[in-house]
């Protein structure tokens, strides 16, 4: 909801097509190319009419931008459509930073220190690094305290965290330590998988740091419970 509001405030008319489901990333990363292709075609079809497709998750955006064209390469009927969708698709913070619309309403407030976790797909496939930081500068009262190893994976990795839970836990524990060392009261990110992973570990350990999607803070919605807290 926060993402949709940010887009509306930037002057766009937002629609959420009823028929969309999943971008197919789990199938693609599990080696099930056929299923991934079918879901890619479905998504391309659902999103064919929109000028911009804005995705509040780096890994889903990367699947559509970087991998649909690979998946459908050689498919005469769909290849061009895949490139066309890739051209129109942006990750949320990248889109907002590019749109660079001056905030018309009173800016969001979030007093205190936060730290930012760079989710791998967004960072390495879509080079999203500066955009969320740039947008966060507009939030009143907020100071960004970078943690060590901000670009190191949190251990989520889609099905990885279920298949290799012990390794994943080790990685997310490292991440939580780095977050605590930063002294931030909240950790922000742009990918829900990572945020659920980090929040889930912090709550299991009783670490009193909140986790929010960056859009929640930008939209001024981060006054309530963080991810994994009672809503």
């Amino acid at each position: 909801m926060a993402a949709a509001e940010l887009l509306e405030r930037a002057g766009y008319r937002v629609e959420v097509p009823e028929g969309q489901t999943c971008c197919g990333q789990p199938a693609w990363n599990s080696g099930d190319e056929e299923q991934a292709r079918e879901l890619a075609r479905q998504a391309i079809h659902q999103l064919r009419e929109f000028d911009h497709v804005v995705v509040p998750s780096g890994s889903c955006a990367a699947t559509m931008i970087c991998h649909y064209p690979t998946l459908l390469a050689g498919d005469r009927e769909w290849q061009d459509a895949a490139y066309d969708l890739a051209r129109r698709t942006r990750e949320l913070t990248a889109f907002l930073a590019e749109a660079s619309v001056e905030p018309t309403e009173t800016p969001a407030r979030f007093p205190g220190k936060v730290t930012y976790h760079d989710s791998c797909s967004g960072l390495r496939q879509l080079t999203i690094h500066d955009q969320p930081r740039q947008l966060l500068q507009r939030v009143e009262g907020l100071t960004l305290q970078e943690m060590e190893d901000t670009e190191v994976c949190c251990g989520f990795g889609g099905t990885f965290c279920i298949k290799y839970p012990e390794i994943s836990e080790h990685m997310v524990s490292d991440k939580v330590e780095r977050i605590q060392e930063s002294g931030a009261r909240a950790v922000l990110g742009g990918d829900l998988g990572c945020l659920m992973n980090i929040a889930g570990r912090m709550q299991r350990l009783g670490v009193p740091v909140k986790a929010y999607h960056v859009a929640e803070v930008l939209a001024g919605h981060a006054d309530g419970p963080g991810i994994g807290e009672k809503g």
């Binding site: 839970p165 659920m196 889930g200 299991r204 994994g228 807290e229 009672k230």
Partner: peptide, 22 residues
């Protein structure tokens, strides 16, 4: 508002809580 055990996802909940939808 969160789960410390989840059927079919023991891998997740062995070391992490799982957030319930808000």
């Amino acid at each position: 508002g969160r789960l410390s055990r989840l059927p079919l996802a023991g891998g997740w909940t062995s070391g992490r809580d799982f957030p319930a939808p808000q």
